[in-house]
């Protein structure tokens, strides 16, 4: 186990190194000059040159990358070109909001997805099941921008149950978390349905039924715990998927997370911020996958880590 963990950690570090290099190269070859963005439209050639030198952008790419990397391993993510603030400060100010939204999103997708999946499995082959599977298909395909605005309009503007965007209280979290969760709930309901259908066919369920247990008891005590196992491992992978989703959801709801930060930085070629957000997201994804792999053997003893 310790050996496995060590190997995986080394692997993770290599993956992050690769991500940092590829992102850096992509930003370097991008036909857009960050110095132009900083210098503004009335700048003289002299000003542009001065800024380029001060930021070290006149150096060869590998030198620039090495500087970035040596800073990064010491915890220095650089300064934003445009906000003139430490990138770590900017990310630290926004990361909690993103993590909260992600947690809310995962809770929502599990709650909605698992419930629908169980109901569909119980009524498999009947109109309710077919209806729910159509719903889940729509949920998977619906663009988050549209879903978000729709929820906002109905539940915040028309019904007034929730605040119209913003951040701060639990009420602020509901709509963005549901928006984020709806897409994943489509996947989960389908997975839960097939997993549940599988379990319900097992002999021990038939035995339980033969003993005369109630349907509810069979479902909740005997079928559900076994059907849910393969799904829990998926949550780790979700973190990666959500890193993409939060950019849109944060923008619709005015949620002050790192997705908004990334979007604005990309518009203005603020390379240190783009690098910083990319590295943090990549670390979250790598960590999520690692956790998923570590959890699996705990819930299913047949799987061994080597």
């Amino acid at each position: 186990m310790a050996g496995y963990l060590f190997r995986r950690l080394v692997q993770s570090a290599l993956i992050l190194l690769g991500v940092s290099f590829i992102t850096f190269v992509l930003l370097y070859v991008l036909p857009a000059d960050p110095v132009r963005q900083i210098a503004g439209r009335s700048a003289t050639a002299q000003t542009v040159e001065n800024i380029r030198q001060q930021l070290g952008l006149d150096q060869p790419m590998l030198v620039q990358y090495w500087r970035y990397l040596t800073g990064l391993v010491q915890g220095d993510m650089g300064r934003s070109y445009l906000q003139k603030t430490e990138v770590s400060t900017l990310i630290a100010a926004r990361l909690p909001a993103s993590l909260l939204l992600m947690a809310g999103g995962i809770a929502c997708e599990l709650l909605i997805g698992l419930t629908l999946g169980v109901v569909a499995a119980v009524f498999r082959g009947r109109p309710l099941d077919q209806g729910l599977m159509v719903v889940s298909f729509v949920a998977v395909s619906a663009p988050q921008f549209v879903v978000g605005l729709l929820l906002l309009y109905v539940f915040a503007v028309q019904l007034g149950w929730f605040p119209i965007g913003g951040y701060g209280t639990a009420a602020h979290l509901v709509l963005p978390a549901v928006t984020l969760g709806i897409m994943g709930s489509g996947w989960y309901s389908r997975m839960m349905r097939s997993s549940m259908v599988e379990v319900l066919r097992q002999d021990y369920i038939r035995t339980a039924r033969a003993k005369g247990l109630t349907r509810a008891r069979i479902l909740i005590r005997h079928a559900l715990p076994n059907a849910i196992l393969p799904i829990i491992a998926m949550i780790g992978i979700d973190i990666g998927i959500f890193m993409g989703g939060i950019v849109v959801v944060e923008s619709v709801f005015g949620w002050p997370g790192i997705g908004q930060l990334a979007w604005q930085a990309i518009q203005r070629v603020d390379i240190p911020v783009i690098m910083g957000v990319t590295m943090v997201s990549a670390a979250a994804i790598v960590l999520g996958n690692l956790l998923a792999d570590l959890i699996t053997p705990l819930i299913d003893p047949r799987i061994k880590l080597r």
Binding site: L149, L152, V157, I164, S251, W255
Partner: peptide, 16 residues
């Protein structure tokens, strides 16, 4: 000043 607000959401909030 509240930042990070989509113009379309800002309009809805103005109407409210």
């Amino acid at each position: 000043f509240e930042v990070g607000q989509e113009p379309i959401v800002a309009l809805l909030r103005l109407q409210q």
